[in-house]
Design a binder for these strands. Structure first.
Lengths: 144, 144
DNA sequence: TGGCGAATGTTACTGTATAACATCGCGACG
DNA sequence: CGTCGCGATGTTATACAGTAACATTCGCCA
């Protein structure tokens, strides 16, 4: 899916969910899309300042929070960063793989494997929320 | 395992790994042990300052990093915090369950379930590091 | 057209973490 | 015994991450 199609789909997605992908939110989403992999909030802020002169942290954080809420982005706790989710349509749980060496990020679906985790959690009397796992390791290129 | 035994075991553990649980590191570990569940670095810093008058962030962070490296603590990314690991002896991967409501933390072993995750990662040409998963959800008490 | 609510702007601050350099303490080794 | 090296700790300053609180704007619709 190219960038234009993605943005259009994202807009429709928000519409369906009863909220709006405003100009600002769209701009922030575009800025995130321009990067490979994980982006930091302050990187987005800097980019935004380049495009519109002024912008303060809350501006960016509010937009990012919104996009995460809509499932368009995932937050990567381990890196204090954000990655685009390119399959926000399907209700899913996914696994985000972050390469320790090159920082590249990929997202894979993981329903089956998660079932096992849910079992373990159940055994500990714990109910898991829907969530996205972030795991670190080595990607194909860096493993060599 | 009570606190004294734990500290002694921790010291032996470091020894075996060829490094030292110095007085400072031991003190920081004790401070973490005094709390239930997750502790923040700046909480430890404040405690440390109460005990020894002065202390700066790097002092605490260096000690915490060391303890994490030795497997005595786990870092909980999602909370910017740290929890004691009470089974640092066995080479293990574990799953840290954080209750969204009360903040309580428990750690469970999870070898079996992880095998599934490794399979999924392999399929994506990705080699997972040994790591501790942090998952959020609701604990028994808060689920009611 | 006026008023309501959501979105955004603005200021200031709190919390998290690390860089860079100084100093200390202790064991190895001549 | 000195001193060299090195790991641990102290110190200062600053970078990076996130939010509270309040002001303002904008679109919608009664």
């Amino acid at each position: 899916m190219n960038r234009t199609d993605y943005l259009q789909a994202a807009e429709a997605h928000c519409e369906r969910r009863g909220c709006k992908l405003t100009a600002l939110r769209r701009q922030v989403l575009e800025l995130v899309l321009r990067h490979q992999g994980v982006v930091k909030a302050y990187q987005v802020l800097a980019d935004l300042q380049k495009e519109r002169g002024v912008a303060a942290p809350p501006t960016v954080y509010r937009a990012l929070d919104f996009l995460v809420e809509q499932g368009l982005l995932h937050r990567v706790d381990a890196l204090n960063g954000f990655v685009v989710c390119d399959h926000f349509e399907c209700q899913h749980e996914s696994m985000i793989l972050v390469c320790e060496t090159c920082g590249k990020v990929q997202e894979v679906d993981v329903m089956a494997a998660l079932a096992g985790l849910h079992d373990v959690a159940d055994a500990a009397d714990f109910t898991l929320s829907h969530q996205n796992l972030t795991l670190t390791g080595l990607c194909k290129a860096c493993r060599i």
